[in-house]
Design a protein around this nucleic acid. Structure first.
Length: 507
RNA sequence: GCCCCGGUGGUGUAGCCCGGUCAAGCAUGUUAGCCUCUCGAGCUAGCGACGCGAGUUCAAAUCUCGCCCGGGGCACCA
């Protein structure tokens, strides 16, 4: 049967089966369940115990994008319930990174501001016998939990637990001796519901509240309470946070339900965002700091010339899924390049320069536009026959071959290899033939840092992943301000990191 | 060990809920060509994927079951 006949037969036997499906690719992020325009509320929940990573940036962007889409509210809420880990410089890192991304939050708070409020919920649960004070050794509690068996403290009278609670609040117990546990579901198949800890004593000054509290709520309780207080309607977070326990806590505390959407962590190839992996690199000096251009931190990618809009667009493109993924940097680079290309000045840069003298060269003042298509202005460069060109280009030229000094004139090589002599060969533009960048007198020495992958395919740290290229740039280079991004043609897009030092973003 | 959640080209995703023009779209990557005073941008063409097995069905990426593989959780971390 011919294809047409087959289709006709199928349609006759199963009417309607062949109706064309609309192939509408998803535009932007998928719609949210139960999100009402003007009533949705989201949160950015960083723990101020490390620097902001690009993973945070993407997760935050998702929340922000939704907040915008639904005209909702957005909280920046520091999850600082572990005084041993929180530090002021990390709060700042997040504030800085969020501002850089162009994310505006409607409210900002720290959980440590609300400890008294969280206490009142805790106290109520203890009073009602829904939570109890437990003095088991951690290892014992753990193995009982593993087996799904309760300890003797579980049946302690509520009054007794309440007295202990008050003593804990009053700092009359030592760290590690007593905790408050939820009377959860000891027989549950989900081990996280088996009487988890709600409060524990941490005798360590907090960067914001000092020594005011030593009894601290654990993450799950603090979150359940805070999401209620903040009026959060939608939680979008990565999947290392399991939701079962918070749901249980919300229902025990009589809180309204919240939509929870989990997605897997945003990993980039060769640069894991886990603090556990990143911290040793800093401490052992493998990288120069948290803002090393190889680091997947916000400070790191900013230094190498990734622009905030690129992170936003990239996030929108890849969206979020529960699939494990490892983004190839080229995906981000492509987005960044499209943003940078139309607005970046082109500046001549000669890596590994070698001098040539052009015999018979006219004295020319070249006026060259900063961009081949856009009007980004021009610069003029005076020349008088002495140039520096890339060694690699010169090495590939045969004796007698003609090449072009870009935007200037043609030159014939006189001796090959390390040849330093050449002669003027007209200025008519030739379609074929090599075009090389050059600098004349007045070139500026420039160092370019080129970031590679911190970890190789085997997962081993590559200490030589930051390459350095030395060269010379044209005089207008010295007019750049730190933070400016330009393209060195045939080399790559680079950002001025400090006077005389560029960091390459990508080709 | 127990509990969740996943598996579509090299990479990232769309499609899966509601089976059919899906011999699978898009982006990135890569190859070739065009264009270009850049190896950038732009344009054209090519390459490349439904984890495995069984079942249901006229028809399975899509539904069912089993298996395999991966991630996360089970902290006095968040």
């Amino acid at each position: 049967m011919a294809p047409q006949e087959q289709l006709a037969a199928l349609e006759a036997k199963y009417p309607g089966s062949l109706k064309q499906h609309e192939r509408e690719g998803r535009e932007g992020l998928p719609p949210l369940h139960n999100a009402v325009k003007g009533k949705a509320c989201f949160r950015l929940p960083p723990e101020p115990s490390g620097f902001m990573t690009i993973g945070h940036a993407m997760a935050f962007s998702i929340n922000y994008l939704y907040k915008e889409e639904y005209s909702g509210e957005l909280w920046l809420r520091f999850e600082d319930t572990n005084p041993k880990k929180a530090a002021r410089r990390y709060y700042d890192s997040f504030r800085r990174g969020i501002a850089w991304l162009g994310i505006t939050c409607d409210h900002e708070k720290n959980i440590s501001d609300d400890i008294d409020r969280i206490y009142s919920y805790g106290r109520r649960m203890v009073e009602k016998g829904e939570a109890y004070a437990c003095s088991c050794e951690p290892s014992r509690a753990k193995s009982l939990r593993f087996e799904g068996r309760p300890c003797e403290h579980r049946d302690r009278p509520a009054g007794e637990s309440l007295a202990l609670w008050q003593e804990m609040v009053d700092k009359r117990h030592k760290e590690g001796t007593l905790v408050i546990r939820l009377k959860g579901e000891m027989g549950s198949a989900d081990p996280s519901l088996r009487d988890p800890n709600l409060f524990r004593i941490i005798d360590h000054p907090h960067p914001l509240t000092g020594d005011r509290y030593t009894l601290w709520p654990t993450y799950n309780l603090a979150n359940a309470v805070e999401d209620e207080i903040c009026g959060v309607t939608h939680i979008l977070r990565s999947s290392e946070f399991q939701s079962g326990l918070q749901e249980l806590l919300r229902s025990r505390l009589g809180f309204r339900p919240v939509e929870v959407i989990q997605f897997s962590r945003f990993n980039f190839k060769g640069a894991p965002v886990k603090k556990r992996v990143l911290r040793p690199l800093v401490e052992e000096g493998v990288v120069s700091g948290w803002d090393d251009p190889r680091m997947p931190t916000v400070d790191g990618v900013r230094r190498r010339g990734i622009v905030p809009e690129a992170i936003r667009q990239f996030t929108l493109q890849v969206g979020y899924t529960k699939t494990e993924h490892e983004y190839d940097w080229s995906l981000l680079y492509a987005v960044n390049r499209k943003l940078l290309d139309p607005v970046s000045k082109r500046l001549f840069f000669v890596p590994d320069p070698v001098e040539i003298t052009v015999d018979g060269a006219p004295d020319v003042e070249a006026v060259i536009p900063y961009h081949p298509e856009r009007d980004l202005g021009t610069r003029s460069i005076a020349t008088s026959g002495r140039f520096r060109v890339p060694r690699a280009d010169l090495a590939q030229l045969k004796d007698g071959e003609v090449f072009r000094l870009m935007d200037l004139y043609n030159v014939r090589v006189r001796s090959s290899g390390g040849g330093v002599r050449a002669e003027y060969a007209g200025d008519e533009i030739q379609r074929e033939g090599r075009k090389v960048q050059w600098t004349a007198d007045g070139g500026v020495p420039v160092k370019v840092l080129v970031a590679g992958l911190l970890f190789d395919d085997a997962g081993k740290v590559d200490p030589s992943s930051l390459a350095e290229v030395s060269g010379v740039a044209e005089p207008s280079f010295s007019q750049l301000a730190v933070g400016d991004i330009v393209q060195f043609p045939r080399f790559g897009f680079c950002r001025l990191d400090s006077p005389g030092t560029m960091v390459m973003a990508h080709k």
